[in-house]
Computed example of a mutant assay.
Amino acid sequence: MGELLSDPRNLAVFIQLLSAIFSLIYYDKYKKVPVLKLFPFLLWYILFNEVLGFCIRQYISDHNAIIYNVYYGINFTYLLILYRRYLTNKKSKHLVLGFLILYLLAYVLEGFFKNYIKEFQTTAYIIASLCLIITIILYFVEILNSNKILAIKKNLLFWISVGLLIYYAGYTPYRIIRNIYTELDKSSAIIAVMITLTVIMNTCYIIGFIWSQKKEQY
């Protein structure tokens, strides 16, 4: 573990570990909330995936794309299902369902043109992240137009949404540009931005776990 954290890029692992731990400490608050109760499993899976990816890259092979491609599929599918569950506007719910179908189709189709074992998905990732950003904005609009705004800081899904929006709004442009300028993968500035976004996102999660209340989870 010491060697893992000695790499500045893996500072993200530490904050992800804290976030996963806090998700269990405060699990009693939302353990009966549909779909949202699965969020800690996602956080622990993300942490495991990061450690596994590091170990593969460090000790086995330079090609660890497959575990991240599987993770992308699970992550985006879960998040879109989560928001569809708690959006109340029927048009928004139908739109998010369309987003989910679009992403899954892109995920499968891109697999025919890329070697998912060695290459990270790009088009499917960009589609999913843009769809997720739009979905979160729809959720915020509903929050602003409801009485939930009065207890916003006690709402766990709100804090999760803030973290996700900051992360994907900051990271998605990089993923788009990286398709053109592949040398960006090795840019220390880009790596620093990725770490910063990850820290901010997981800090939002932790705040949500601490401040949220049982009756104000979504």
Score class of each variant (00 low, 15 high):
35 V>T: 07
68 Y>L: 10
51 V>G: 06
32 K>H: 11
63 H>W: 07
30 Y>W: 05
37 K>F: 05
52 L>I: 07
62 D>Y: 07
61 S>N: 10
62 D>N: 14
75 N>V: 04
51 V>W: 01
61 S>M: 09
59 Y>E: 11
70 V>T: 06
26 Y>T: 01
70 V>L: 15
76 F>P: 01
34 P>R: 00
69 N>E: 14
36 L>D: 07
57 R>Y: 13
86 Y>M: 05
61 S>Q: 05
36 L>P: 02
26 Y>G: 04
61 S>P: 03
72 Y>N: 15
53 G>H: 12
35 V>S: 03
39 F>A: 08
32 K>T: 13
76 F>Y: 14
48 F>Y: 10
52 L>P: 02
79 L>D: 00
25 I>F: 10
35 V>D: 04
42 L>N: 04
60 I>M: 09
66 I>W: 15
81 I>M: 02
47 L>R: 13
68 Y>M: 13
80 L>Y: 03
64 N>V: 12
77 T>Q: 00
29 K>V: 12
74 I>E: 01
71 Y>M: 11
76 F>T: 03
38 L>W: 11
53 G>R: 13
41 F>R: 14
77 T>M: 01
43 L>T: 08
70 V>Y: 11
39 F>S: 09
72 Y>L: 09
86 Y>P: 02
63 H>G: 05
72 Y>I: 08
79 L>R: 02
41 F>N: 06
69 N>V: 15
73 G>I: 15
31 K>E: 13
68 Y>W: 13
80 L>S: 05
38 L>V: 08
39 F>E: 02
29 K>W: 12
81 I>F: 00
40 P>I: 00
47 L>C: 07
27 Y>A: 15
36 L>T: 14
44 W>D: 05
37 K>G: 02
26 Y>K: 00
42 L>K: 01
69 N>Q: 09
38 L>K: 05
43 L>M: 09
69 N>T: 15
26 Y>A: 00
74 I>L: 14
66 I>M: 12
44 W>I: 12
84 R>I: 00
45 Y>C: 03
34 P>G: 09
40 P>M: 01
78 Y>V: 00
32 K>G: 12
71 Y>V: 14
34 P>M: 07
